[in-house]
Structure formats: structure tokens, C-alpha cells
Design a binder for these strands. Structure first.
Lengths: 120, 120
DNA sequence: TCTATATTTCAACAATTCACGAAATGTTGT
DNA sequence: ACAACATTTCGTGAATTGTTGAAATATAGA
């Protein structure tokens, strides 16, 4: 089955997701991760690697035990379309959604263009 | 001069500021505005134009009367470093802080670079 | 100094978000 | 089917954020 990046519904939802320090920390952690992609039988690109929720949890909180707090924040990031989470056996693995990051770069880039006409 | 991304706490403050629909609307409005800069006597670049708080208010809410709500959101944007507000006679005029926008573009651009080593 | 205009601050309330722990769900191996 | 493991969901309370209208502050001009 294809891994489809969720549609980027609302920019403010995305920014709100990044507006929490814990979530931003998770986001940056995932950005630093390598992103080996594999071609599935049907030709779809599948994200097969990335830290598990437990590993993210450990990296962010330092604790061994999985935190419902991290699960909550991962969900927010996922609903905002910033990360992809998929099951891999017993674990859920997380990856940043590079398309979303690209879109964000473009977003700010296009806001730097000088306007055609003054608005004021 | 290099644009250096501030630490996570500052960044999350910026994203939190953009994470409210009203504030994002104001931000985008100001991005669309022309930004004539003037050189002050001492050589400093001064922002001298931009819509007044009342004009922003009118544009966002449609109402004639100035809203304390907009004032509140402008303050949040200003504290996050996203906009510049300065007095011009009886009015306060608003401009987007283009340096901040540049920094944000750089931020997401640098997060798109493939990592040197896998983290997982 | 008085008045009108522009904007911010304040206080009260409503709404949303966050954290915590317990219970529920889904997966693997026996 | 059962046990162990990984993760999510749920309920509750605390903390934060957003809205509203009234009062306060600042500036310009008469």
C-alpha cells in the first residue's frame, strides 16, 4: 500500500504543531535521521526506516519507558502532515515528511518576493 | 553575514506565533506589503511605511473600530520577532521583519539536507 | 490645556492545550 | 489462546491562550 503524505490542510495547523518545544524537538530529531526509502513490489516508495516511538521517546525524555506524552505530540505532528508514522512489526517507526519541509521552505521563500504593488 | 537559526525555544515561539489563524492572516497581509526603507541620519535603516494598526484591523476583521484583539495578536507577532511596529505620529505602523522570514526559509532549507550519518 | 484620535493594557471569562497515569489496542512468539 | 511487548486512547486536572469591553496611555492639533 502506498504511503501517502497527508494533505497539508492548514498552514496555521502546521505552525501550531511546531509551536510546542517538545514537538519541535521531535521534528528536528527526525529531520536529522537518514531516510532510506525502498521500492515496494508495486513500485510505490515506502518509508521503511526511522526511529521507533520508543526511541524517539528515549531520545527526547531520556526515560526508558514509553510516554503517552510523546505519543500525543507525535499524533499532532502526524495530523499536521509533518511526519509519517507506520507500523513495523511491534513498533511504529517515524520519519519526517520531506515534502512538507520542502513546502515550508517554498512558503517562506515566496513571502520574501518583493510585492508587485504597494498595499499601503 | 550568516543567518543563524536561534535555539529551539525561540523557534517554537516563532511557530507558535504563526500557529494562530488570525496571526497568520496578519503575517501574510504584511508580507504582501511593500517595504520602503529609509536611511536615518545615523545610517540606521528605518522602516517608515506599512499599514497602521487600524488598517490591519480593518483588513482582517472588516470592522472600522480598532480591536484590542488585533493589538494582542500584533504584540505576539512582534515579541516573536516576526514583525516590526513603530510609531508614526498618531499611528503605529507595521511591517514584516524580512530578516526573520529569510531565517525561516533557511531553517527549513537546512533541514532538507541529507544527514551525514544515519541516526537509526 | 482641552479635545479628538489611535492604540494598548487590564480584568474577567471561555476555550484550548498539556501532562499524567490507567486502561485499552494491536503485534509477535510460544 | 496466552504472555510479553509497543503504542495509543481515555479521563481528569492544571496551565495556557484567546476574546471582550472598559479604562488607561500617547500623540497631534486647536
Amino acid at each position: 500500500m502506498a504511503v501517502i503524505a497527508p494533505p497539508i490542510l492548514d498552514m496555521s495547523t502546521i505552525f501550531k504543531a511546531l509551536g510546542d518545544p517538545t514537538r519541535l524537538q521531535i521534528f528536528e530529531l527526525l529531520c536529522k535521521c537518514e531516510y532510506p526509502l525502498t521500492l515496494a513490489d508495486n513500485g510505490d516508495v515506502r518509508v521503511v526506516c526511522g526511529p521507533t516511538v520508543g526511541e524517539v521517546c528515549c531520545s527526547v525524555t531520556g526515560a526508558e519507558k514509553i510516554n503517552s506524552k510523546i505519543s500525543f505530540h507525535l499524533k499532532e505532528l502526524r495530523l499536521a502532515g509533518l511526519i509519517l508514522v507506520e507500523r513495523q512489526g511491534k513498533n511504529m517507526v517515524c520519519n519526517v515528511n520531506r515534502q512538507a519541509v520542502e513546502m515550508l521552505q517554498t512558503y517562506f521563500g515566496s513571502r520574501l518576493q518583493p510585492p508587485i504593488e504597494p498595499c499601503c
